[in-house]
Design a protein around this nucleic acid. Structure first.
Length: 711
DNA sequence: TGACAGTTCAT
DNA sequence: TGAACTGTC
């Protein structure tokens, strides 16, 4: 044991000992105290769901075990204020240094900045590291030194950076423990009695913990990766990497995954194995999307609750809690959607393709507000991840520049080939011959035939449809009565009729979109006239509250011991999932968060430590520095007036640059505090979608500074 | 080789 | 829908 002068390593979502830069730096510095602080109330409405807490519990136990074998252990603290608890740990152990790895969700950005400030003020040396990304968000910029606004451009840049992502670090061989005799652990409670039964099933399918994650990675790289491109569209999870929950909790290093996959790619390229090469590209792209979600979150910290494209704030979402309930329960009448929702409920897992199916349906057919769907995913997914889920839902909702176009449920295809007008098959013609119908085409749900061609997935999760022939499995509403009878199905009775017809959905979508554009135009006109500043802003920027039935579903059963601030979905058929507290005062909370975050972004990192280590530490000089509006391209005529005005009033900022390994780390001065985010102009339009070309007035990302003023 | 139709797939 | 790709003449 070493006495004072030890280092505290603050573990969060980096629950591994391998390639953990904060841990490695602490080990090099001498005595180490490892701490995990459980303060879920700090997450506000994003209190972790049942399955997510289950994972965390086991991952922490696993980490503790590894640390014990290396010579120390994991101190756990229950808290409602992470920073205060952190300070207590530092004081009680006599530590002089704090090390942690970066997170990029809005709450962590604020919290970590505060931790740096508070501890630095106490004379503690604070250093933070990149353990979660290939490249830090502020290192990936376009030729104007602005952040990218489309994935393709972003990822293209990542793959052509002048320096490779850091090679993964080996686990420490031994850790000298700091003095924790005056720093006892709290017992952390991650599940209540009622949840234990459901959670027990999870252990059959999943093994949390960093070394299990490492095994999963190796298994995937040496096995399913080869056929990843061929298999990836199938609905069952057997061919995906299954790494996402491990990645969420930082049990596996994304850099290790990247380097291992790249090595395979080189190997397969030498063997002229085209499919293998393509598989690696696709796998790396999915890693890239995860990177991009952090990038978006860092550059637009409101992206989990506001559309990034301004005009979408005028979209009249359908506020229908019965639709929402039917979707959650898997009773929409669309078999693939229902199968997916039931799998999600039962297992906490969904194949990526099915996530796209159920969320597209949610947004485009039911036209429910995407944040409701995102919140439900948050509560139920094993790999719930705020940044990735926000990006996914914004993509599906068409609220990011390269997202799915919203105005495309039109004829006759629903984007993504989900609905297609197809000729009747031979069998169908035959079966319809007896009737007098002259129909020769029909709508089917085409996506179903792509990712579940034989209907096995649907039959697995919807046993009531098990006897329906494959021909009709994805569109039972088209099946002849005789077929339904033979399969024991009575639509509207033991399986629902579609709750919304596709034609009705298309009609409503068109009406809603024209309403949206009208409001958008009116708002813009008002702003340009200077009469009514931001007409419509008052409603636009207030997120639609989560549904009452979630909010009001208090759990009244006294025997249950829910974590504070949780609610239940009582209407679900499967018992015992908890959902997080829905904010009662949504508006205030958002505003507070935004202001806090803005404050964070407006300041220079207070990284006062002189770097002694050669490489990775240098990367951290610019940690959580603010934005780069000093490098914005000239205001574009196509961009709304209010932006031009803001640009003209924006303070110019100065920056200095430091050389690092051929790269450059920006260090921003306090004068770069004004934040004005906008899209580049046409000349900057790498990957600009046709949608935006058709609607240049919408070619802007919602300005977050204005939001915080008007929200 | 090149024009053209059919196809596939979107981050 | 439309860009990129495939196959045919």
């Amino acid at each position: 044991m070493s006495g004072g002068g030890c280092s505290v390593v603050w573990f969060r979502r980096d629950l591994r000992v391998e390639d953990n830069p904060a841990l490695a730096a602490a080990v090099r510095a001498g005595g180490v105290v490892c701490v995990f602080i459980w303060a879920p109330e700090e997450e506000g409405p994003y209190y972790p769901g049942r399955v997510s807490r289950w994972w965390l519990k086991h991952s922490l136990a696993h980490l503790d075990c590894s640390l014990k074998s290396l010579g120390t252990s994991l101190i756990t603290k229950r808290s409602t204020d992470s920073v205060s608890s952190l300070l207590e740990v530092v004081v009680s152990t006599g530590a002089t240094q704090l090390f942690f790895n970066h997170l990029y969700d809005p709450i962590s950005l604020v919290r970590d900045h505060r931790a740096k400030e508070v501890l630095t003020a106490q004379g503690i040396a604070v250093r933070s590291f990149n353990a979660d990304l290939l490249y830090e968000p502020w290192d990936v910029n376009d030729v104007h030194d602005c952040p990218f606004t489309t994935f393709d451009a972003f990822w293209g840049r990542c793959l052509s950076m002048p320096y490779d992502p850091d090679a993964p670090l080996l686990p420490p061989k031994r850790i000298i423990s700091g003095d924790v005799s005056r720093c006892p652990s709290d017992t952390l409670v991650f599940e209540d009695e009622s949840e234990k039964g459901s959670n027990a099933l999870l252990a059959r399918a999943w093994s949390p913990g960093w070394s299990n994650a490492d095994k999963a990675l190796t298994t995937f790289i040496n096995g399913p990766l080869l056929d990843y491109s061929y298999n990836r569209r199938k609905a069952d999870g057997a061919t995906t990497s299954l790494l996402s929950p491990h990645l969420h909790f930082g049990e596996v290093s994304v850099r290790k995954a990247f380097h291992l996959a790249r090595m395979k790619q080189v190997l397969w390229a030498n063997e002229s194995n085209k499919a293998g090469e393509e598989s690696v590209n696709l796998f790396l792209k999915s890693i890239g999307l995860r990177e991009y979600s952090r990038y978006i979150s860092f550059n637009h910290p409101y992206s989990h609750e506001r559309p990034l494209l301004g005009h979408l704030k005028f979209f009249p979402w359908v506020i229908n809690q019965n639709y929402f309930k039917a979707w959650r329960q898997g009773r929409t009448g669309y078999p693939l959607v229902d199968a997916g929702m039931r799998e999600l409920w039962a297992t906490g897992w969904l194949h990526d393709r099915i996530r796209v199916v159920v969320s597209s349906f949610f947004v485009k057919v039911l036209q429910l507000p995407w944040r409701w769907g995102m919140k439900y995913f948050w509560d139920t997914l094993l790999d719930a991840d705020l940044e990735s889920d926000a990006l996914g839902w914004q993509y599906i909702s068409g609220t990011i520049p390269d997202g799915r176009e919203f105005d495309r449920i039109d004829n006759p295809q629903f984007r993504g080939n989900s609905f297609a007008l197809v000729p009747l098959s031979h069998d169908e013609r035959k079966s319809l011959k007896e009737s007098t119908s002259v129909v020769t085409t029909r709508f089917i749900w085409f996506e179903g035939y792509k990712c579940d061609p034989n209907g096995e997935y649907v039959r697995k999760w919807l046993p009531e449809l098990a006897r329906l022939p494959t021909e009709w499995i994805h569109h039972p509403w088209n099946a002849p009565e005789s077929v339904l009878q033979a399969a024991g199905i009575e639509l509207g009775s033991n399986y629902p009729l579609p709750i919304v017809g596709i034609d009705a959905a298309k009609t409503r979508l068109q009406e809603a979109l024209s309403e949206m554009w009208q409001h958008e135009a009116a708002s813009r006109a008002a702003v340009e006239n200077g009469t009514e500043e931001g007409l419509g802003d008052s409603s636009e920027s207030v997120p639609i509250a989560f549904p009452q039935d979630i909010q009001m579903e208090e759990n009244n059963e006294p025997a249950r011991n829910n974590p504070p601030g949780t609610r239940r979905y009582e209407d679900q058929m499967v018992p015992s999932i908890t959902t997080s507290l829905v904010r009662a005062e949504e508006e205030e909370t958002s505003l507070e968060l935004q202001n806090l975050t803005e404050e964070t972004r407006a300041e220079v990192p207070t990284d006062l430590i002189v770097n002694q280590e050669p490489r990775r530490d240098m990367l951290n000089q610019g940690v959580f520095q603010t934005t780069r509006n000093n490098a914005l391209p000239p205001p574009n005529a196509a961009i709304g007036m209010q932006h031009a005005v803001e640009d003209s009033t924006a303070e110019s900022s100065s920056s200095t640059r430091r050389e690092r390994d051929g790269g450059v780390v920006p260090v921003w001065s306090p004068s770069s505090s004004s934040y004005s985010e906008q899209f580049g102009s046409e000349d900057n339009s790498i990957g600009t979608s046709s949608y935006l070309q058709r609607h240049p007035q919408s070619h802007q990302i919602m300005n977050w500074r204005r939001l915080s003023q008007t929200g």
